[in-house]
């Protein structure tokens, strides 16, 4: 079963690498952020699988931190003083 989880983790890592293309090409800032958001969720899934595969519970805590703090960057992006969206609202 460990091998299987590891295999799925490898597959997910591969989809992340493919998804990098969206960060490279954009074109909008939002597109790039959305891609990073997908990475975050995929990364969490990988961490959970690794935690199961290597039987390391601290890895699960790292996954917890990633999900907990995921909103921070985007909130900073849309709410920073001087941000464009803000002025138009």
């Amino acid at each position: 079963m460990e091998k299987f989880y590891l295999g799925v983790a490898c597959f997910l890592l591969a989809t992340m690498i493919v998804g990098l293309v969206r960060v490279f090409v954009g074109p909008d800032q939002e597109d790039r952020l959305v891609a990073v958001q997908l990475f975050g969720t995929t990364g969490v899934a990988i961490l959970l699988l690794l935690a199961e595969a290597f039987d390391a519970s601290s890895v699960r805590n790292a996954a917890l931190l990633f999900t907990l703090l995921a909103v921070l960057a985007v909130v900073a992006f849309v709410r920073s003083p001087g941000s464009l969206g803000e002025r138009e609202e």
Partner: peptide, 16 residues
Amino acid sequence: PDIALAEAAVGAGLAG
């Protein structure tokens, strides 16, 4: 794992 936890917190949150 200690550094991974710290990196998760800093990388996902503060650095962004």
